[in-house]
Simulated assay, not measured.
Amino acid sequence: MRAALSFARADLTDDDGWAEAVSGCTYVLHVASPLGVATGSGRDAYVRPAREGTLRVLSAAVDAGVRRVVMTSAAATTRPPLASGLVSDETRWTDPDDPQFDNYRVSKILAERAAWAFMAGKQTELATVLPGAVFGPVLAADNLGSVRIIGDLVAGRPRFLPRLGFWVVDVRDLADLHVTAMIAPEAAGERFIAAGDFQWMGDIAATLRTGLGPDGRKVPTRRLPTTLVRLLAPLSADLKPLAPLLGRKFALTSEKARRVLGFAPRPVSTTVIDCARSLIAAGGR
């Protein structure tokens, strides 16, 4: 009897193991991208493994005759220039040299561009899913990525809230969308933004304070003026890449994913509270 689940080892920075990993596969979901790169590392430390790793996955999938690859990109790959007034949708391609983007987001932009260029004319199909800020229940308290924002708030950090906002998507809804994009015939050759509602950090903090009961007692409530944050941003490794986003709510639509694939994100309050409770249970606050 064939096992329902098996494992293979492969590395985005190495050619070895990819042929074996995709052998016999009908579909491939490429969800990995470098995130925890050492502070101070240059742009290439993010871009090279993201772009070259993507091409390794795609090359192996094409050689193995995989029917379709679904790649996780980022909603930022559709974001227009600051103050342009334009809406982010799947028809837009972000300029990787726009100074609003940090190295991680540049790596997502260039990796997705490389993916579409490589797959042009190939028999294997490609679809990409472009999530906003991914929150929701965690399996472990390490390598938290964007979920660290929730963990920090529960722990009382930062003491004062900057006016930063996020288009939130629940990790469970994102996983479901990947599966739908994998099997739906109409998803072939398409990009799909995955985002629910927009939330300011202050809104998220308020949800945590009211929804967690005693576990939310440390969540900060005081706001930090945007002008002051902008003055402090150059001095902080965490704030510096976020400075262009202070006080800005970008127009974004996930209408295509809703219409074509039936994407129906759950309420942000549910996502945030479930995320926090899972972090508390895992010891990640």
Rank of each mutant, 00 (worst) to 15 (best):
F7W: 14
F7L: 10
V22C: 07
S23Y: 10
V31H: 01
V31R: 04
S33F: 02
P34M: 01
A38N: 11
G40T: 01
Y46K: 00
E52D: 15
G53R: 00
V57C: 14
S59V: 01
A61H: 02
V66R: 11
V66Y: 09
V69Q: 03
S73I: 14
S84C: 10
G85V: 00
D97E: 15
D97P: 04
P99H: 10
Y104D: 00
S107Y: 00
K108P: 01
A115F: 00
A120M: 04
A120L: 05
T124C: 15
A127Q: 00
P131M: 00
G132D: 02
L139C: 08
A140W: 05
A141H: 10
V147A: 11
L153A: 12
A155T: 12
P158T: 12
L164M: 11
V169E: 05
R172W: 05
D173V: 01
D176V: 06
L177N: 01
V179G: 01
E190S: 06
I193F: 01
F198S: 04
D203E: 15
I204E: 14
A205C: 03
A206D: 08
P214K: 13
P220Q: 10
R223W: 05
P225I: 09
L228D: 13
A233N: 11
P234G: 15
L235R: 09
S236G: 09
D238H: 06
K240Y: 11
P244C: 11
L246S: 13
A251I: 09
L252V: 12
E255I: 06
L261W: 06
A264Y: 06
A264W: 02
A264D: 14
P265G: 10
G284E: 08
